[in-house]
């Protein structure tokens, strides 16, 4: 993301931008490790409401998995400079990402209708906050991806940007895997 990336590209080391992404992922892992361990500590104390997570979360899980597949497809298309396929793939990924976020919103509505509110027993609050912080990570990813989508349509593919697309894909797969972890975590702990 800077003026040096182009120059360092061929130095025989791990690309700094990619390396930075992995470091960032380490930080984000710590954030969610903190939140989910807070959850476990609190749960162990008792007075813990048990409920089923909304069905729509299952659907969202499928959507986010599909978006990872299409993201990978986008990286491959970009690497071959196949503009048409890249446009299709990145737009699909973006759309699936938006669908996921909208889906999460409906999931929260479903929870609320089912009597699990943001306030009240912390077992519900944790689900809202943890999935909310995850959704914020998705939203940031989508904002950055939007730039990529716009570029795909209005600018020629630039070979030097392959690394940016790859880093974007790493982030996207990370938030995907993160959601799978959270999903399984909730499944095990709630019902």
């Amino acid at each position: 993301m800077n003026m040096m990336t182009a120059e360092i590209k061929t130095v025989n080391r791990f690309h700094p931008l990619k390396f930075m992404m992995w470091l960032g992922i380490a930080g984000m892992v710590m954030l969610f490790a903190a939140l989910t361990s807070a959850y476990l500590v609190r749960k162990a104390q008792g007075n813990w409401l048990e409920f089923r997570i909304p069905f729509i979360f299952w659907l969202n899980t499928v959507i986010i998995l599909l978006s990872s597949v299409s993201m990978q497809w986008a990286v491959k298309a970009f690497a071959r400079y196949d503009v048409k396929k890249y446009r299709l793939a990145i737009t699909t990924t973006f759309t699936l990402g938006v669908m996921f976020l909208v889906g999460q919103y409906f999931g929260w509505l479903q929870l609320d209708e089912g009597g699990i509110h943001l306030t009240g027993n912390p077992s519900g609050s944790y689900v809202y906050v943890i999935s909310g912080v995850h959704a914020a990570h998705m939203a940031v990813g989508l904002l950055i991806m939007l730039i990529g989508v716009l570029r795909a349509f209005f600018r020629p593919l630039n070979p030097n940007r392959l690394v940016n697309v790859q880093v974007m894909a790493t982030y996207w797969h990370f938030v995907d895997i993160l959601w799978i972890y959270l999903f399984i975590f909730f499944q095990f702990n709630l019902a």
């Binding site: 930080g27 710590m30 954030l31 912080v133």
Partner: peptide, 9 residues
Amino acid sequence: LISFPVLLG
């Protein structure tokens, strides 16, 4: 990098 995200949480 490892500890500040926990404070953020």
